[in-house]
Amino acid sequence: MSGVQEALIQVENLHRVFVTDEVETHALAGIHLSIARGEYVAISGPSGCGKSTLMAILGLLDTPSEGDYWLDGRPVASLTPSERARIRNRRVGFIFQSFNLIGDLTVHQNVELPLLYRRVPSAQRRQWVQEALDRVGMSHRAKHYPAQLSGGQQQRVAAARAVVGRPAILLADEPTGNLDSNSGRAVMDMLAELHREGTTICMVTHDPRYAGYAQRTIHLFDGRIVDDDMAVQKPQDSLGGTVERRA
């Protein structure tokens, strides 16, 4: 079990079954996966293969029907809803395809939200929010409302919100899905920058160009891992850049 303790995320034999109107859908059918601290993993596969379901379980938004999950060496199956909320708040950062910023809150307030739930003192909150916005280059828009930003800017704010609490892992579900190619590339560059600074990233994408940003790509099909490639990304030039496969 030494590997289990060293990995940030460790899942074994993960199943997730959805039952609707007497129809059983096996979204995940026996996933074994380990993600080390500081790793940048891309999960790819066709629509309906279970990428987002896996992501939701890794982010403690959903619970598996069967199997074990250790986060930072700690099993999560027995956690209460409050404990899961606390871990989500302190250990996990989310970036969603549709940004999901709250329209009634300013950029600053959106980014501040996880810190409010953590009861971080206001002075520290201000400092962390400022740092997070600086990291994604959105400080100058702190007082704006999300509707006043472009799609790419909104996603950068979403990224700032995801990392402001200094999570152990950043989960990004199709972070470029709603962006044009330029904005998408900017977001991917930003994630790469965050990874270089030490953030563990697990990203769902069905776009192989963006999967190439990750050190490792896991391919899912019908709820199973069908391929697990470790890649060494030479230049960080993203689209069209040279990618060398390690395994």
């Binding site: 982010g59 938004l61 809803p81 409050s82 909320a85 606390r86 989500r88 708040n89 302190r90 989310f94 969603f96 999901n100 709250i102 939200l113 996880p114 739930y117 953590r118 919100r161 609490g165």
Partner: peptide, 10 residues
């Protein structure tokens, strides 16, 4: 849902 994903408790 987003607030809960960001760690909001009941």
């Amino acid at each position: 849902g987003i607030r809960k994903a960001l760690g909001a408790t009941h």
